[in-house]
Design a protein around this nucleic acid. Sequence first.
DNA 1: TTGATTGTCTAGCGGCGCTAGGGTCGAATC
DNA 2: GATTCGACCCTAGCGCCGCTAGACAATCAA
Lengths: 192, 192
Amino acid sequence: MSVQERKQRERAERERLIVATARELAEQQGWDAVTTRRLAERIEYSQPVLYSHFRGKREIIGAVALQGATELAGALRAATVTADGPRARVAALARAYLDFAARNPAVYDAIFQLDGGLAYAQEDTPEPLKGAFAALQESLGEVAGNGVHAGLFTETFWAALHGLATLTRARRLPPEYIEQRVELLVDRLALV
Amino acid sequence: MSVQERKQRERAERERLIVATARELAEQQGWDAVTTRRLAERIEYSQPVLYSHFRGKREIIGAVALQGATELAGALRAATVTADGPRARVAALARAYLDFAARNPAVYDAIFQLDGGLAYAQEDTPEPLKGAFAALQESLGEVAGNGVHAGLFTETFWAALHGLATLTRARRLPPEYIEQRVELLVDRLALV
DNA sequence: TTGATTGTCTAGCGGCGCTAGGGTCGAATC
DNA sequence: GATTCGACCCTAGCGCCGCTAGACAATCAA
């Protein structure tokens, strides 16, 4: 059975390679440049091999999204544990979120803009996505204020961050004053 | 000279037809379905005719975006004039904005998500885009609060609306409770 | 009437996501 | 160790895409 196991391992390894390569290519040249041909060439296999791992390009985007969501959740938690008090936690959370979006634009798109065939905000939502939302809510739930549902507050605050992240990167918002906008958001939305 | 004028009129009319058809097709089946072939077929001309009006598909998206921005500005102003007092104006503005995004998803994408080759937040930004932002600022500037720059406040509030609009439509946010989220935003961000 | 110009179309280029079908090569059997 | 068999991967190609070159027809000017 050792031969089969080795093959399974190699297959899993190749799948990781595909996802990592897609992500890398997307960050380097944008998702439009991630074509099945280019991707196949980079991993040094032919195109059809991709389809033995994923149903299509959409699923590859989805895989990158899940990986990214896990990292995002980690980054958010890492940023908030060291902060002192609810207000500081929320501020750190907001900065970490926007920082992640700015540093990993392609991954951010995979999670929040592109169609990766994933279910969001439902029961069958994959764990990494739920986890990322949970990471947001852990800090934001503290400052929702009386009578305001924590989930609803988290969604709204998150939407504001998402708007800042996407409009800035799509050059719809001038890149200056990011910090002031975050301050404004935290000051007004978070009740300490 | 009347012949030339007639030709010019006809050309302009055809250009309007192209933009209107692209918009219609995009709203019906999404921007992915707006291919130069389909577009050409719908206007009953061959593909190259499109390229005698626009440099490419990107410019067609840009044309739809400009048209949409003008409409958006109008919708925002129409919604705010009847409202009584700054708080009500902002609430009406927010609802009108989200309503526009929900009713014209493809146009909204053309304005705020897709690449239409337009300049944003710069001196050479086309007038319709400046106008839409101005329409936002007219109502939002009133509730920025002391010491907060009106432009910065407008950008931040707008980003929050944009986040709600896009996340809702991309099914990242559950479609219920939209009104509550808007209430929350207006209550907290707008200083009356 | 003729020649130039303008306008439009047909055809085609390279590239896309995706798949059918054939060939190769290693594992299991005798 | 030879033979069979099945898993695996590649070549080739389908119907699309955005975009363009070059042929051709209609119109205008001389």
